[in-house]
Structure formats: structure tokens, C-alpha cells
Design a protein around this nucleic acid. Structure first.
Length: 860
RNA sequence: GGGGACGUGGCGGAAUGGUAGACGCAGCGGACUUAAAAUCCGCAGCCGCAAGGUGUGUGGGUUCGAGUCCCACCGUCCCUACCA
């Protein structure tokens, strides 16, 4: 017997598939149904990690499965290649972002190819190539023309050391994630995409995505945060402040509680607050103090409500004799609603906290069921539950919803306000003051204003001669790049030096894959053939931003006529992370981690222990954590490929946990997968069995097992339950031992079993499967072989083992042919010796026979 | 504060309301070997010599039958956040 050697076998088959162009997808309709499978494309950080191995293997399993089932499969790969790490490398090591990026891509491409994934590499592109980002500039200008792109002055996080804007995610506890400097709020003119125009469509579209996880749909819905309420204006007592002649506008979702109003509060950034601050140092000091509060979780949790009574009073909209004080309050946000609220402390916790602190009135207007109006009191907790409105004039006695409608109607009749829908979602700020991104293709002209770069001058390419020796945007200090003549008037003008947020790059790449050489952004015919993506796979960390942006851009491009689909991803699967045990040295003051490669694991008295290989020093086995350099629990894919083969790595990472959950990498686990690979090979690496008469009964038994396996494995892939399917494959190999190759009496059924088995493992261990297929004399390659077809007739059991319960506890079992009449089964069950022991002294009250399943005897 | 997910052996986990613990890891025993590794065969929830009992976070409920469905509680993890 020849031992299986992945080192020889695996490269051979990868080369064979590549030479034959096996995975090249055709844009021509060949009659087969199309299937577009896509994993979120990687950022070219330099090396692939186990998370990539898991992600791309998962997609590959589905791709190979669908292909075998007769689909025309598109499975492309690209690179999300713009972004800060390349510039950081440039600043730290003096390399150029472009060179650094393409070197990383080259290295990672080779690693991904090692993984044996069935990628159509002919469609590969990187977002940092002008051929890609130039097309992005083209549709950006189309959206600009449509009015979906605009500029406005916005507050941004400014890193005073790096001289750049930071995304919210890059601000940690108020400091820049790289420089550690305290982040400043600055007002800058920024570019925005009008995603809020699509807020309703993006919420409503979620209901069509029935193959998305509920969790992700819910997260998006919460992120968009649609709420319905009332927007109305308070009139001022006395002369209105300048600019507020029409009144002070507020937004509320609880107009039913208007008679519980206690005060009005405005955000520290509200124009009225700024106006007052300009006139009064006291107000200015208060506003400044509000700004200092941090935005971290702990700070918000403990942040005290701060308020400043402006002395201004407004008139209650339903009672001209009733006036309310206007406060500046730190808990009111300028960028939600109108930046001003009316407060009803009895029924809102924040309002209540504030009212108690500043001794403002608390008047309940919602009476809980079973509470009495004379005795109902508000203590330190606001009442937000259901109830009946009271203390509220015309709304008295109404339910909450009816009262909301009545209040809105009254306000509309008074022409003082109207029902309004408000979103949490903000327009998408896409300006970055960075070099390594898509240049925004616009020219600023003193005479003409903003001028789009003419189509025949696209792409606007990044200059390569830039320096990173100083902080700030290299494009801004480039000696010549930005100085151009105005395309409109020919006068001196300047290019926009902001580049696009990299999330723009990833919000349409799936459409570009349909035809990456298209002369326009999207080849519509090709996109119509492939889109939507039938199955998208990636990390849950993109549940909101990337997936929301991609949905938005798809809808915008559809409205522009470039695409036909409204939703880019029909199916979404979010996979878990790859984790690993950590190992720590004992008796060190702070955690001192040790890399798995330096650790030797053993068992002492049945308990797992870890030792330092070099010295034998005993180590603690720590928590299981996401693989990270800081925890030193990273395992490099290439080391695993070398040691156990690619197929073993693929198999283990798919077998150990359900795909949506974290998988715990372990040496023992991958060794087990490697053992399985070797055992599979041994099963095929045998002499043909001697000719003999076939044993019909045993052959049928093997065929039953084979077809049950086909059903189980097929369903496990369709339902993303890879771990269960792989367990069935392991189980089957154990069953196969009962039908050895030396037994000529089952040779035909065994041949069928091996043929099916080989095709069923092919998505997981494609190299091994090819080798086995070749060994057994299969026609062509297994990669081109059709998926085995399940035959229910061959899978049907002739004789069943039916458990017999007495009062719900298993007491025996009977054997009966499938479909045996109930009366017969009942008689068999009552006659069973194990059962009769437990029936002694009892009277049988009832016998429940579930056909072909179970018998339960009720007795007392 | 709001939302969500999950609690099953030593571990990862399996189980259309129908034999709980498949499959794997770790463990134990055996074969082969001078020996070890590798490989192969076997055992294995827990208590018990056994018969048997007991068992899916806790307590109730529905059902002939509950890991699965319902209610309450406990615990863990994730997301989100002064969003009016």
C-alpha cells in the first residue's frame, strides 16, 4: 500500500485544473442555470490567515458543489487594495504604497492558489488599479449629476498629529488610534453620498432578503433607525430670537405626552445655543464644558446630565397660557431630529433624571392599566409602558396610539407642525484626506465653481511621485498634480485632493466581476447574466457598513440604469472567527504569552498539560481567543499546508464547528483530519476485488448506506451545515470497513459506494478526491463529474428497529418491516421481554404507535 | 438603557416533538514493534460490581412522549447606545 502524499498530489491537480481552465466562467448562456458565489474580497495585508482559509474554503465548497450539480458557476477573486495600512507602511518603512500593495497581492495570490479554491482568476482585479477606480470615478460623476453627491461643512474627527480626518471607528477613547493624540472636532467641507434618500427603500428591501440572517437584517434596520413622530414649532413668549421668528422646532415620537411637558431642551450645538454663547461668556463656558465629555461607553454610562436655563420661555402649543423654560442640555444631540426636544419627565428616563436634578415639574399623563389616577406617582423611574392618557384635555381616555394621532391632527390643523419620519441614518461622508484612495474626479475653478472632470479625461490617476516624510495628505503638497486648467473656462483651477472612502470601492466590485474589462463601469448584459450574487459569504463585522453601502450603491446604479437588480446579494452567510487556545508562562507579572509552535501538549493523569518545548517549563493553558499577534496564538496556514496538506486543513476548518460559530483551531483536530485523508486514500488504494457472485442482501445494505449518505451530504451543503455533513462522511468510512475490498461478493455495490463517496468529499478535499477518482478509474476528473443522485428507493430500510417505551422511558425494541400494520407492531411491542418486565403489575391504558418510528405504552 | 444569540460528556459538537451524546479531539485498554513513533482493533455521559438509577443551566407548564414548544428565573457572549 502506498501512503498518501499530499505534497506530490496536491500541486499536480492544481496545475491540471489551471491548465484546463476548469474554473473559467463563461458570460455566454449555455443553458445551465447560473450561480454566482462570492466571498468578501480580502484586504492585501501581506499574508493570508486562518480566517481567510475558512472563508474561502467555505465558498469553494459551495462553488464546487453547485458546479457538480450542473450550474454555470461564477466564483471570482479580487483585492480591496486601497486604504491606510499601505500609507502607514510608506511612512514607517519608506516603501511606496503601490509597490507594497502589489507585492502583498502577489504573495497572497500564491497562498490562495495553494488552497486549491475554484476561482476564475481571469477576472481578478485590484481596486487600486486605474482601470477599476477610473470606472468608479465615472459612476461617481453620474451620481453627482443625479444629485446624490453633495458637499457640506461637517464636523469631523481631526487628528492633530497625523493631520488627517479619522473615521469614527478610528477614534478610541477620544484619541487617534495611530498617533494617540486627543482628537479634535473640526469643521471641514466634506463630500457626501445621499444615502438617506434611500432610507425607506433600504429598510423595505430588507423584507425581500429572505436568505439573509435575521440578525443582520435587524442590525441594518436598527442602524437606519426609522421612527415616526411629530415635528412642530414652539412659539416664543415675547420677541423671538434672531433667526427663529418661525418658532423653535422640535421632534418627538411621543406627541401623546405633550400635556406632560415640563421643559424644552436644545443641544449645545443648536444655533440658538451658539447665538446665546456668543453673547454670554457664561453660556459659552457651559457649551464648552459639554463638548469635553467623551463618547466612550463608560463615559456615556456615567455622564451626568448637565443643563443651563436660558431664561427664554416658549408657549405650549395646546395651551397659550402655559409657558415652558428652554434649557441647554448636554444629552440632546444636534444631529438627530431638530436638535431640540420637549421633555416629558414622567414618561422618559433621561428627561426624568434631568428634571429631578434641576427640580422641574413631573406630571404623569399615561395611566398604567389597573393604576388609579389619584394615587399613581412617578418616583425615580419613568413609566414607558402601555396605558390610558389622562391629565391631557382632549386626549383624556385615549390609548397611546390614538392620542398620538389626535395630537398630530390637532397640530396639523393649527398649522404648527406635521407628522414626520426621522432616521438615525446619516448621509455617508466619503471624503478622506489621504493619498491611497480613489481621487474624487472634480476640479475647483474660481470662475466656474465645481467642474466634473470630463469623461475623456478619466481616469484621474494618482501621481506616483509622492512623499510620506511629513504628516498630512501627500496629494495636497504635490508640486504639480493638483494644478490644472478648468475644463470649462480654461482658466487656472485646482483638482480636488480628497480621495474616496475605501468602502466606496467595495460597494460595487461584485458587479464589476461580471465583466472586469468592460469599457464602462458595468457591462449591463453581463451583470444581468450573473447578478444578484446568489451566495455571499463574509464576516459579521460587515453586517452594517459594507453591506448597507453595497445595497445603497446597487440601488443608485439601478436608478442610473447601469444595473437591473435592486439588491446585490440574494443570499448572505456570516461565518465565525478562527480561534486558538492561548498559552501563558506562570509567575509572570503581566500575561506573557507563548506561541503554539513552542508548546508541547501532553496528558498527565488524564488531564491536558502544556509545557515549553525547549525547557519543559510548565505553562498555563489560557482562554480560547481569536487568533492575534498580541495573544501569540496565530497559526500560519502555510505551516499547516506543509505539515498536513491543504486538504486536511480545509477539511478540519470546515468540520469542527458549525460555520456561523467560531472554530477552535487545534493541532489534534487537524491531525485527525489528516488521518481521515490517509484512510480515505487507503480505501481506494487497493487491488480490484476478485470476481464473485454478488451477495444481494449485503449489497443492498451498502447501497442503503450510500444513498443515505448522498442525501445527508447534499442537504448539509445546501443548509450550510458542513460540520454535520463531514461527520456523515467520517461515519461512512467506518461503515465501509464492513464491506472490504477483498470481499468480491459486494464488489459492485462497493464500486458504486466509492464513486459516490469520492464525489461527495470532492468539495472539501478536492485534491484527494481527484487522486482517488484516478485510482478507481473514474471517467475524466472528479471535478467534472456530476453530483451523485439520491435514490429514495435504494435508501429505504427494509427492516426497522423500533424503540418501545413504557410511560416515556425506553424499555426495549422490536424489529419490523417498514409499513408493518399498527396492530402487528403493537402486538410485537407488548410481547417484548424487556417491555413485559416493566409492565408487570400495571394495566395498559393506551398504546401509541408512530408508524416506522416508535411505540409508547401508557400504563399505570 | 435597548436589541440579539446561546447554555448538551473532560473539549468541539450531533439530534424533522420520537432510542440524547452521532462524528471528531483528548483519554483508557489491546495488537504490531527490541523499543518508540506511525498504524490498526476495542472501551468510554455520570453513579453503581451488577441489576438498575440518573442525566441536555434552574423552576414550572403543554404532550402518550420535551435538548427541541410555552412561561419565569439564572448565567455567558455579541451588537448598539443620552436617537427624544
Amino acid at each position: 500500500m502506498v501512503r498518501y502524499n499530499p505534497r506530490d498530489t496536491e500541486p499536480k491537480w492544481r496545475a491540471a485544473w489551471a491548465d484546463a481552465g476548469t474554473f473559467t466562467a463563461s458570460n455566454a448562456d449555455d443553458g445551465r442555470p447560473k450561480y454566482y458565489i462570492l466571498e468578501m474580497f480580502p484586504y492585501p495585508s501581506g499574508r493570508i490567515h486562518m480566517g481567510h482559509v475558512r472563508n474561502y474554503t467555505m465558498g469553494d465548497v459551495v462553488a464546487r458543489f453547485k458546479r457538480a450539480q450542473g450550474h454555470s458557476v461564477l466564483h471570482p477573486m479580487g483585492w480591496d487594495a486601497f486604504g491606510m495600512p499601505a500609507e502607514n507602511a510608506a511612512m514607517e518603512r519608506g516603501v511606496h504604497p503601490k509597490g507594497w500593495t502589489f507585492e502583498n497581492i502577489a504573495a497572497m495570490r500564491e497562498q490562495l492558489k495553494l488552497l486549491g479554491v475554484s476561482i476564475d482568476w481571469s477576472r481578478e482585479f485590484a481596486t487600486c488599479e486605474p482601470a477599476y477606480y477610473g470606472q468608479q470615478q465615472r459612476w461617481f460623476l453620474a451620481l453627482l449629476k443625479r444629485g446624490l453627491v453633495y458637499r457640506k461643512e461637517a464636523q469631523v474627527n481631526w487628528d492633530p498629529v497625523d493631520h488627517t480626518v479619522l473615521a469614527n471607528e478610528q477614534v478610541i477613547d477620544g484619541r487617534g488610534w495611530r498617533s494617540g493624540a486627543v482628537v479634535e472636532k473640526r469643521k471641514l467641507t466634506q463630500w457626501f453620498l445621499r444615502i438617506t434618500d434611500y432610507a425607506d427603500a433600504l429598510i423595505d428591501g430588507l423584507s425581500t432578503l429572505d436568505r439573509w440572517p435575521d440578525k443582520v437584517r435587524l442590525m441594518q434596520e436598527n442602524w437606519i433607525g426609522r421612527s415616526t413622530g411629530l415635528r412642530f414649532r414652539f412659539g416664543f413668549e415675547g420677541a423671538p430670537p434672531v433667526g427663529l421668528e418661525d418658532g423653535l422646532e422640535v421632534y418627538t415620537t411621543r406627541p401623546d405626552t405633550l400635556y406632560g411637558a415640563s421643559f424644552v431642551a436644545i443641544a449645545p450645538e443648536h444655533p440658538l445655543a451658539e447665538q446665546l454663547a456668543a453673547a454670554s461668556p457664561e453660556v459659552a463656558a457651559f457649551v464648552a464644558a459639554c463638548r469635553q465629555g467623551g463618547t466612550s461607553e463608560a463615559e456615556i454610562e456615567s455622564a451626568e446630565k448637565l443643563g443651563y436655563d436660558t431664561g427664554i420661555r416658549v408657549v405650549h402649543p395646546f395651551d397659550p397660557s402655559w409657558t415652558l423654560p428652554v434649557w441647554i442640555a448636554n444629552f440632546v444631540l444636534m444631529d438627530y431630529g431638530t436638535g431640540a426636544i420637549f421633555a416629558c419627565p414622567a414618561h422618559d428616563q433621561r428627561d426624568l433624571d434631568f428634571a429631578r436634578k434641576y427640580a422641574l415639574p413631573v406630571k404623569p399623563v399615561v395611566l398604567p392599566p389597573n393604576a388609579h389616577p389619584a394615587t399613581f406617582m412617578i418616583g425615580s423611574e419613568a413609566y414607558t409602558g402601555p396605558g390610558t392618557i389622562f391629565n391631557s384635555d382632549f386626549m383624556d381616555g385615549m390609548g397611546i396610539e390614538a392620542a398620538k394621532a389626535a395630537a398630530v391632527a390637532r397640530m396639523e390643523a393649527q398649522q404648527q407642525g406635521q407628522g414626520a419620519t426621522v432616521y438615525r441614518l446619516r448621509d455617508w461622508g466619503i471624503s478622506r484626506q489621504r493619498y491611497w484612495g480613489t481621487p474624487i474626479p472634480v476640479i475647483h475653478c474660481q470662475a466656474c465653481g465645481l467642474v466634473p472632470v470630463p469623461d475623456d479625461q478619466l481616469p484621474v490617476e494618482l501621481p506616483e511621485d509622492v512623499t510620506f516624510d511629513r504628516p498630512g495628505n501627500p496629494l495636497l503638497r504635490h508640486p504639480t498634480w493638483r494644478f490644472v486648467s478648468c475644463p470649462s473656462c480654461g482658466g487656472a483651477a485646482e483638482r480636488e485632493t480628497d480621495t474616496l472612502d475605501t468602502f466606496v470601492d467595495s460597494s460595487w466590485y461584485f458587479a464589476r466581476f461580471a465583466n472586469p474589462d468592460a469599457p464602462g463601469p458595468i457591462d449591463k448584459a453581463a451583470a444581468d447574466r450573473w447578478l444578484p450574487v446568489d451566495q455571499y459569504i463574509g464576516g459579521i463585522e460587515h453586517a452594517v457598513l459594507h453591506l448597507l453601502y453595497a445595497r445603497f450603491v446597487t440601488r443608485a446604479l439601478k436608478d442610473e440604469g447601469m444595473l437591473s437588480v435592486a439588491e446585490p446579494f440574494a443570499g448572505l452567510f456570516t461565518q465565525g472567527m478562527v480561534t486558538h487556545e492561548t498559552y501563558l508562562r506562570r509567575q509572570s507579572e503581566r500575561p506573557e504569552y507563548v506561541e503554539p509552535a513552542e508548546v508541547e501538549l501532553a496528558a498527565e493523569k488524564g488531564v491536558r498539560v502544556a509545557k515549553l518545548k525547549a525547557t519543559g517549563e510548565a505553562l498555563d493553558i489560557g482562554d480560547v481567543e481569536k487568533m492575534s499577534k498580541s495573544k501569540k496564538n496565530v497559526v500560519a496556514p502555510e505551516d499547516i499546508f506543509d505539515a498536513y496538506g491543504v486538504d486536511a486543513a480545509r477539511l478540519f476548518v470546515m468540520s469542527d464547528s458549525p460555520p456561523e460559530r467560531d472554530v477552535q483551531w487545534s493541532t489534534g483536530g487537524v491531525e485527525g483530519a489528516g488521518r481521515f485523508v490517509g484512510r480515505v486514500w487507503n480505501e481506494f488504494d487497493v487491488e480490484p476485488p476478485p470476481a464473485a457472485d454478488q451477495d444481494a442482501e449485503r449489497s443492498d445494505a451498502l447501497r442503503r448506506a450510500t444513498h443515505k449518505l448522498i442525501k445527508a451530504v447534499t442537504e448539509s451543503i445546501e443548509g450550510f451545515k458542513f460540520n454535520s455533513g463531514i461527520a456523515k462522511l467520517y461515519e461512512f468510512l467506518n461503515i465501509l470497513k464492513g464491506f472490504p475490498a477483498t470481499d468480491g461478493a459486494v464488489s459492485a455495490a462497493r464500486g458504486e459506494a466509492l464513486s459516490a463517496f469520492c464525489r461527495l468529499i470532492a468539495p472539501y478535499t478536492p485534491h484527494l478526491a481527484e487522486a482517488c477518482w484516478e485510482r478507481m478509474g473514474g471517467e475524466g476528473w472528479v471535478v467534472n463529474a456530476p453530483w451523485p443522485v439520491f435514490d429514495p428507493a435504494l435508501a429505504a430500510d427494509s427492516e426497522l428497529v423500533l424503540p418501545v417505551q413504557v410511560n416515556g422511558k425506553r424499555r426495549g425494541e422490536v424489529r419490523a418491516a417498514a409499513g408493518t400494520p399498527e396492530a402487528e407492531v403493537r402486538a410485537l411491542a407488548l410481547a417484548d421481554s424487556g417491555v413485559s418486565v416493566h409492565l408487570a403489575g400495571l394495566t395498559v391504558r393506551k398504546v401509541i404507535v408512530v408508524p416506522d418510528r416508535i411505540i409508547n405504552i401508557v400504563a399505570n
